[in-house]
Structures are given as structure tokens and as C-alpha cells.
């Protein structure tokens, strides 16, 4: 039968971006182990409303581990301790009765807190806007099968494209670097034939944009450990190689004009 847990939560509360913020302690009693972590927070919020207090704001939407909206540092770990799992897919059966759980927002300079546990991750969008696309206007595509894509390239590209843009990699990184995210986005496009013509230009602009927001990578590998989609560190190496090549190739091209 389903077990029930009694837990203590220490939750970060912050009344907007200019408030310094603080921890509040809440009792979470009678939590079913079949519940997800966010359903547990729903219950706390119901209690807060009952007590005429302001509920905790947290980001979430699909609750299926695919939209990348949910976040949270749970006991100091991005998306909690369960490997390859987003917070929305983390279930309470992974906790023990009597546990104290510390819940904080993703912390990074590039992810300012909006309110409570909600942060602003729009710097990721700026990286995409800097070149994370293949320029092909609607209607300009030729028949899809005219461009065969070797299955291996397609599969590896997919492994990279599986990134959900959640930002756990940044939150987990001691330097708040966004190498894992950016390299995943780059590898998705740089590995396949369709992405070749803009490959080096894209690499340079995306990496440069990344660096204006985020810290530098010092190869801790914490990002990969925290990543709910287990994006491989190999993509960072791939990105670094493409970046070096880009510096040469793009300069050469520029010299021709």
C-alpha cells in the first residue's frame, strides 16, 4: 500500500527581484509517496492559502519532463538527487519519512530571481537568437529525402537536440557556465548536413553570446551530472573544436570581402 511521509521543508521566499529573500520552514505532513515533488508543493500551497498566506511561486507546466519549465535546487542539487529526472518527474517515494528538504531557486548571475523559486532564463533565448537555427525560409525547402542524413549523425544530433533548456546545467556549475546547453544546441545543428553552411558562423556567434551572460567552463562536469536529459560532455569538446575552427574560418571568409 501507499506510504505516507511527514517532511520538513525549508523554502526560499523572495518578494520580487529586489527583495534579499529568506528561507521559510513548512511542515509537509501526510504526503503520499505516489505524489510528484510539485504535487507536494501544490499541497503546501493549498495549506498556505487556507492560512491566508501567499503561496509559493514555482515554474512548471508540462509535468512530464519535456517542457523544461520546472527547476528548483532540492537539497542543493538541481532537479534533486535522482539522476536523469526533472523536478516534475521526481516522486516522493525517493524521499524518506522525516526528511528535511531544502528548496531553492536555480542560482546564477544570468538567471535573476523573478519571485520565490521562479527565475528568468531568457538569456538562453538570446543564445538561440544569436545563431541557433538553420536559415531556411518557409517554402524554400526541397524534398526531405533529397538530403539523406547518415543515421549515426542523425542519432547523435538527436541526442543533443534532446536538451529541454531547463538550465540545470548552469545552476549546478560552480562557475554558472552554460557550456552544456550551448554545446547541445550547436551540436544538434552542426552535426547534420542541413546545418553545415552556417556551421562556423553559428558557432562563433552563439559562443560569444553565451560568454556575455555566463561564466567560463573549468571542466567540473557538474552540468552533466545534473542534466535531466544526460546531455553528454562530449558535445562541449565538439563545440570547443568547432569554435577554434570557426575563429580561423570566419576570419578567412571575412578577409575575402
Amino acid at each position: 500500500m501507499t506510504q505516507e511521509l511527514n517532511l520538513t521543508l525549508q523554502v526560499w521566499r523572495q518578494d520580487g527581484s529586489s527583495d534579499p529573500g529568506h528561507f521559510e520552514t513548512y511542515a509537509a505532513n501526510g504526503i503520499s509517496e505516489d505524489m510528484s515533488f510539485l504535487e507536494m508543493l501544490d499541497i503546501i500551497n493549498e495549506q498556505l492559502i487556507e492560512d491566508e498566506q501567499v503561496p509559493i511561486e514555482f515554474d512548471h507546466d508540462c509535468r512530464e519532463g519535456i517542457c523544461g519549465t520546472c527547476s528548483l535546487m532540492i537539497n542543493g542539487q538541481a532537479h534533486g538527487h535522482e539522476k536523469a529526472t526533472t523536478t516534475c518527474q521526481l516522486h516522493m517515494r525517493k524521499f524518506k519519512d522525516g526528511d528535511t528538504i531544502v528548496v531553492e531557486p536555480f542560482r546564477a548571475r544570468a538567471f535573476p530571481v523573478v519571485r520565490d523559486l521562479v527565475v528568468d532564463r531568457s538569456s538562453f533565448d538570446r543564445i538561440i537568437e544569436a545563431g541557433g537555427y538553420i536559415s531556411i525560409n518557409t517554402g524554400a525547402a526541397s524534398d526531405a529525402n533529397l538530403t539523406p542524413v547518415p543515421k549515426e549523425a542523425a542519432d547523435t544530433s538527436f541526442d543533443a537536440a534532446a536538451c529541454i533548456g531547463c538550465g540545470a546545467c548552469v545552476a549546478a556549475c560552480p562557475n554558472s557556465a552554460a557550456q552544456l546547453f550551448t554545446s547541445a544546441k550547436l551540436a544538434h545543428l552542426n552535426l547534420i548536413p542541413q546545418g553545415q553552411s552556417q556551421r562556423f558562423e553559428r558557432t562563433e556567434t552563439m559562443v560569444d553570446t553565451m560568454e556575455t551572460f555566463f561564466g567560463s567552463c573549468t571542466n567540473h562536469g557538474e552540468c552533466h551530472e545534473a542534466c535531466p536529459k544526460e546531455i553528454s560532455l562530449d558535445f562541449i569538446a565538439f563545440m570547443n573544436r568547432d569554435y577554434v575552427k570557426a575563429k580561423v574560418k570566419n576570419r578567412k571568409l571575412a578577409g575575402q570581402t
Binding site: 538553420i134 531556411i136 542541413q194
Partner: peptide, 9 residues
């Protein structure tokens, strides 16, 4: 065609 050209894997 459009999606494949955009790099949809």
C-alpha cells in the same frame, strides 16, 4: 520538407 530542412531530427 520544411521541418527536415530546419534540422528536425
Amino acid at each position: 520538407d520544411q521541418a527536415a530542412a530546419q534540422g528536425v531530427p
